[in-house]
Design a protein around this nucleic acid. Structure first.
Lengths: 208, 208
DNA sequence: GAATTTAGTTGAACCAGTTCAACTAAATTT
DNA sequence: AAATTTAGTTGAACTGGTTCAACTAAATTC
């Protein structure tokens, strides 16, 4: 699964454009093979605030974002939201624990703006992998990227202060910062909205 | 890569016993195929405190632990150590970012006790995957397990207090708690040794 | 087995980040 | 465009966890 850290450059523009371009960039396979891959997906529109994954429900799909922005998060008993991932164009998102291990979700996945995703269901994914080892390879690479990214995030959480995590995020994903609500970013970075608000005030006055 | 969360039950005891058993459990392939896999590994003894990975050096291998216990960690400029992973029998360890993307290490990987590992070098891994799609599948599953595990860890870090993280770890890995030094566990859980010491005192007196 | 190094403990002072509350700004609905 | 809901701000009081320092216990080395 593609994550924040490994965005490709945008691809061509035909019907399955982004998706075929994406898989060709990752696997290096030919156009027609990539098309075999792309036709297994279903395009879906998601309105802002609509959920595609909810706790205690099965997670039949993973989603490739064609247009828009989504966010996954967990809610603790005390009602606090914690953002696990963001996904914009050319990124993937779902509740991976639930999707990969056929369990009910523990997360929400919801749209931050009206979005268009390409959804792949679990059974189709298995078929693809049986059909052609190149697709097994694709999902291996995706998982390895995800793993490496998650590990970098664990390291950042262990080694950096709240302010440093924020500044690093701004440096790495300047486009995302403009696009996601502040409460979502704060909970992604592991701090309260109030504190992020104060950090931003400080950062702004500092670079004047 | 196998992680804390997905330990298999121990396998048989011949020369490549653990390893062939391990890969057969993960992929479901036959004994002779598993052997093709296992012969690509080299057995290596590592003395306590010896390093197998060091910052600023290439990372040619990933390691399957046959016997013993290893630990990976980063060191920040102020000299603090942060444990990224532990690995005991039947788990894997390396600096994945560096290994997968052919970059110099940012971590140390070292033995907590005299250990025996099976090392697989990057080129052999590529050969295996070209040779038989089942091996591509093996590394996909390993990466997916690792990804799911890392994500659970991110969630724990975001949602639990230091005390809850410690108690959860004790519940999930009681054997490990006995085996790793306290300073390593504290830095894995994202707290100071001093604070873990206080938590333990509290936990002990509470269950009397 | 004495000396040294490494690991763990305890307490007191401190601080990065939270909580709570009251407010302002912006977006969404009517 | 007025009313309502959702998002972000600011300050003051607070706290979970850190820091520092001095000590004890256990390993390791000589």
């Amino acid at each position: 699964m593609k994550t924040l850290a490994e965005k490709d450059t945008p691809g061509e523009e035909n019907v399955y454009g982004e998706l075929t371009g994406h898989i060709r960039r990752v696997t290096g396979i030919e156009e027609d093979e990539a098309r075999t891959f792309a036709v297994m997906f279903r395009e879906k529109n998601i309105r802002k605030r609509q959920f595609v994954v909810q706790p205690d429900f099965p997670v039949p799909h993973r989603y490739y974002v064609k247009k828009g922005a989504l966010r996954s998060y967990v809610v603790t008993e005390d009602g606090q939201e914690h953002t696990i991932a963001f996904a914009i164009e050319d990124w993937w998102i779902t509740d991976y624990n639930a999707y990969l291990y056929r369990q009910n979700a523990t997360m929400f996945v919801t749209a931050l703006e009206d979005s268009v995703v390409m959804q792949l269901d679990y059974e189709s994914e298995q078929k693809l992998k049986d059909l052609n080892p190149a697709f097994d390879r694709f999902f291996r690479i995706a998982a390895e990227r995800g793993l490496a990214y998650q590990q970098r995030r664990v390291i950042a959480n262990l080694t950096l202060s709240a302010e440093q995590r924020y500044l690093q995020f701004v440096r790495q994903y300047p486009a995302l910062v403009q696009r996601v609500p502040q409460y979502a970013l704060a909970s992604f970075l592991g701090m309260t909205t109030e504190y992020l608000s104060k950090l931003r005030k400080k950062a702004v006055s500092a670079d004047k």
